[in-house]
Design a protein around this nucleic acid. Structure first.
Length: 579
DNA sequence: GCCGTTTTCGGCCCGACTGTTTTCAGTCG
């Protein structure tokens, strides 16, 4: 049933080659601007929601920012020959493990290069042995301190894999709790999250808090003395880093109130957003630092108490943190008419009118139907779909559950209970529930739950052909940090969704967040409506939709792009005509 | 290698910290 489709390299695979090429060139000591051009191109390719390989084949990749003729040609090389020719050549010159040297903390390309070229060390094992034997010290720029650093880094498990990131969903509540206690302290004035957590990135590493205070030292002292702090890694009069019992690092910076806006903007990032902002500013005669904006010609310095003022002074509308990834938000936010784009009015948590994917003890949920409904009602939802797994609801059980829902409906008004189901997509693409049973449900989510690599795309396409399938659940089945996304051809799925009128779920489970931001943005651009739901298996999990909304905002989704911002009546009009 | 509200050539973000050094290159965010 499945035609062999020539597999184009995915965007992340293209990006990886450009990043590696940049690393190897850096180790060779090539021109820094060419290197950063490759890195920028890699970042741009990763952020692009459509197939950049296809764009390059069509000669349209050059329309993307940071991609010119040369890089487009290199993308075509990957498509045709599997690898950038220059990368193939450089791999013969630079030993494979040398590239991992520069990923050790404290080591950079320059030092890694010296270790390789001046000392002839080409493997991690040899590097460790040399450091232990104190043979590195004395060579250009390396002393006992650097040797010790190398040994410490290599002693950590997976030292070369880069630092671990924590899930936003598990971290955000803790971070907010810290912000709350700091706000309650008498010396604090403003306290805000910053960094990737404020941008609602799906995973986070450093937890940044920015504050102003009447007595900075008092606030820092209080922060360092919080009872869950197990280690104070750094401490000054306006700044401290502490480690919690679960290994999270919290950074507090107390800044002068007159430049709180500049500093909050700076520490919210992303790095790419800030670099692009500053480059754009330079072209227009400004110099932007974390403390102020300087008008280069006059030397006049401007500090601002709010982010809104910083952006306005530089000629932009205020940009929501979730958009600050250098994904076109700067052009869209420009205030001057000629360049003005469309900064979207992003969807908000309060826009959600209901949850369209939840579970109960009828399948693998932890809380009962009654309890889940009470929680949904307490949230103020207008409708709420019970979507227990089809495997557990065979035959009479489905009818029994239906009767219980009918019995409860009057009790929970005005909440409207929807009789949903999460139907399993089998390895051959068929559904494991009869059409007759599906036809009896108000809302049908179809999900793949096994053999993720087996015909990942074709199974989903087949499921969407069913007139009863309203929505595809957790499309790629990734588990962040545990399981990579299945090799789903997201573009084809989105095209089929548009053609069949199927909706795509943005599953809000902290380790799923599937659709990813890039995929959700692609859905939006194709006009496919996205459903933000919790997939909640217990009462507390209903809160996860906040993470889904964050992800949706990162994907530039507006209220209109999200299906369940509508009333149930409006949604019914958008559902497929059932046969 | 890319890019353009000074430009198709000549630029390319900014500041802090660290370790190895006597004034700074390399690294980091």
């Amino acid at each position: 049933m499945i035609a062999a489709v020539a597999e184009l390299a995915r965007n992340d695979q293209l990006a990886e080659q450009f990043d590696l090429l940049a690393d190897l060139m850096e180790l060779e000591g090539s021109d820094g601007f060419r290197i950063s051009a490759y890195r920028r191109a890699a970042a741009r390719i990763r952020e692009t929601p459509t197939s950049v390989a296809q764009l390059a084949l069509d000669g349209k990749a050059v329309k993307l920012q940071d991609i010119g003729k040369t890089i487009e040609a290199k993308i075509v090389e990957i498509v045709e020959d599997g690898e950038i020719h220059a990368l193939t050549k450089r791999k013969l010159v630079v030993p494979a493990e040398v590239a991992t040297f520069m990923r050790l903390p404290g080591l950079g390309p320059k030092t890694a290069r010296r270790i390789w070229q001046e000392l002839g060390i080409t493997t991690v094992a040899a590097l460790q042995a040399a450091a232990e034997a104190e043979q590195l010290r004395g060579h250009a720029g390396i002393g006992a301190g650097t040797e010790a650093k190398i040994l410490t880094a290599l002693a950590q498990p997976k030292a070369t894999a880069g630092p671990q990131r924590a899930l936003l969903g598990t971290t955000l509540p803790k971070l907010r709790a810290v912000v709350e206690v700091l706000r309650e302290h008498p010396a604090s004035v403003e306290v805000s999250l910053a960094g990737s957590a404020r941008r609602m990135r799906e995973t986070v590493r450093d937890l940044d808090i920015i504050a102003t205070a009447t007595d900075p030292k008092a606030l820092v002292d209080y922060f360092c003395a919080l009872r869950w702090v197990v280690d104070v890694a750094a401490r000054g009069s306006t700044k401290a880093t502490v480690v919690s019992h679960d290994g999270l690092r919290f950074d507090l910076r107390v800044v002068p109130p007159e430049s709180y806006g500049n500093l909050l903007q700076h520490f919210t990032g992303s790095k790419d957003h800030n670099v692009a902002l500053r480059e754009d500013a330079v072209r227009r005669g400004f110099s932007v630092s974390e403390y102020s904006v300087t008008i280069v010609e006059t030397g006049e310095e401007h500090s601002f108490a709010t982010e809104e003022e910083v952006y306005r002074f530089l000629g932009y509308r205020w940009i929501a943190p979730e958009l600050r990834e250098n994904g076109g938000e700067l052009a869209a936010a420009r205030l001057d008419a000629k360049k003005r784009g469309e900064l979207p009015d992003l969807v908000e948590l309060a826009d959600l009118r209901g949850d369209l994917h939840t579970h109960t003890t009828w399948s693998d949920g932890k809380d009962s139907l009654e309890d889940m409904l009470a929680a949904a009602k307490a949230r103020g939802y207008a409708y709420y779909a019970i979507c227990d797994h089809s495997q557990r609801l065979r035959g009479d059980l489905l009818k029994q559950q239906s009767e219980q829902i009918d019995a409860l409906q009057e009790l929970v008004r005005p909440l409207q209970i929807l009789k949903g189901i999460e139907v399993n997509v089998r390895p051959d693409g068929t559904l494991d529930v009869s059409d007759e049973d599906l036809a009896s449900r108000d809302w049908v989510v179809a999900s793949v739950h096994s053999r993720f690599d087996h015909d990942a795309t074709e199974r989903v396409l087949a499921a969407m052909e069913s007139p009863y399938v309203d929505c595809v659940g957790h499309l790629t089945n990734r588990r962040i940090g545990k399981r990579p996304p299945a090799p789903v051809d997201v573009e084809r799925v989105i095209a089929k969704a548009a053609e069949t009128g199927t909706f795509l779920e943005l599953n809000s489970q902290p380790d799923r967040l599937d659709l990813s931001d890039v995929n959700a943005r692609a859905a939006r651009e194709a006009g496919v409506k996205v459903v933000i739901d919790s997939d909640g298996h217990q009462i507390g999990a209903l809160d996860y939709v906040e993470l889904g909304v964050g992800q949706a905002r990162r994907a530039w989704l507006t209220k209109d792009d999200v299906l369940n911002t509508r009333t149930w009546k409006q949604i019914q009009k958008l559902q497929k005509q059932r046969a």
